[in-house]
């Protein structure tokens, strides 16, 4: 059984090495791949020094394209399972390992780490979302639940674990700039078992969030368009193995 843990990173030289070290310590049997999304700083060098494989996109393509690169790498290189987490230190690797266990033990095809799931809030209050993030979160939560008829609490979570069915689907189709929400909708529509697990998340170790109020509004609008269009995509397309 081979497992790949990949980390999309864009200008995260301050935190990427720490994240890699944590992942290698927590999951020594897994291969670690950093998908560098056209970073201008020393992200690639830091990642290599920390002992990760690096897939470097020649220019910035957006989170969706970076994540798809990871899924494609896992699929092509015959990994049985893969997981990804953010490069800014918000996601504790122990929680990723729990998501992976969910997938390797066959309880789900795709496991999502949720900050807002009922179990997570009781666990810790390390994570404090900003106001605009809270609005976006609840809007997306509502519409994604409506679209998929499955309850999702954390639609923009970048902490996930997946098996080969999901790799095949996401390598073929993954929205380049609206990755998280559309991919959930797509996976549910294709009949995959998507499951949310409560996880603990931390404050960012480095870098800053890209969400300002205006951008959040735009982000929400774009997300709704994407969800609406997604409802009209064909279901159950044969997935290559």
């Amino acid at each position: 059984m081979r497992t790949l843990v990949f980390i999309p990173a864009w200008n995260e030289e301050a935190s990427v090495a720490g994240v890699i070290a944590d992942v290698r310590k927590t999951m020594p049997e897994a291969d670690v791949l950093v998908v560098d999304d056209g970073s201008a700083d020393a992200t690639v060098e830091r990642a290599r020094e920390a002992g990760a494989l690096v897939a470097s996109l020649p220019f910035n393509q957006g989170l969706g394209a970076a994540l798809q690169t990871g899924y494609l790498y896992a699929l092509r290189n015959g990994y049985d399972f893969c997981a990804h987490l953010d490069s800014d230190g918000q996601h504790p690797p122990e929680e990723v390992a729990r998501l992976l266990a969910e997938v390797t033990e066959g309880r789900a095809d795709l496991a999502i780490g949720s900050r807002y799931h009922a179990g997570a809030i009781a666990g810790s209050d390390d994570y404090r979302p900003t106001f605009s993030r809270r609005i976006g979160t609840s809007v997306f939560r509502f519409f994604l639940t409506l679209a998929t008829r499955q309850r999702f609490t954390d639609t923009t979570s970048g902490m996930r674990a997946a098996n080969r069915r999901v790799m095949a689907l996401f390598s073929r189709h993954y929205s380049p700039d609206f990755a998280e929400i559309e991919s959930l909708q797509l996976a549910v529509r294709q009949g995959l078992r998507v499951e949310e697990l409560p996880v603990r998340m931390l404050e960012r170790a480095g870098g800053s969030s890209f969400l300002t109020p205006v951008r959040s509004a735009f982000f929400i609008f774009k997300g709704l368009v994407v969800l609406l269009v997604g409802q009209f995509r064909p279901r159950h397309v044969e997935t290559e193995r």
Binding site: L53, V54, A55, S56, L57, F59, T69, L72, Y73
Partner: peptide
């Protein structure tokens, strides 16, 4: 064309990473 460019960039990145893995 944007989709094609993205896929091209991904293929190249994956190839390089695979080389690195093989070397390792």
């Amino acid at each position: 064309q944007a989709a094609q460019i993205t896929r091209l960039a991904q293929e190249r990145a994956i190839e390089k990473a695979s080389q690195q893995a093989a070397e390792r």
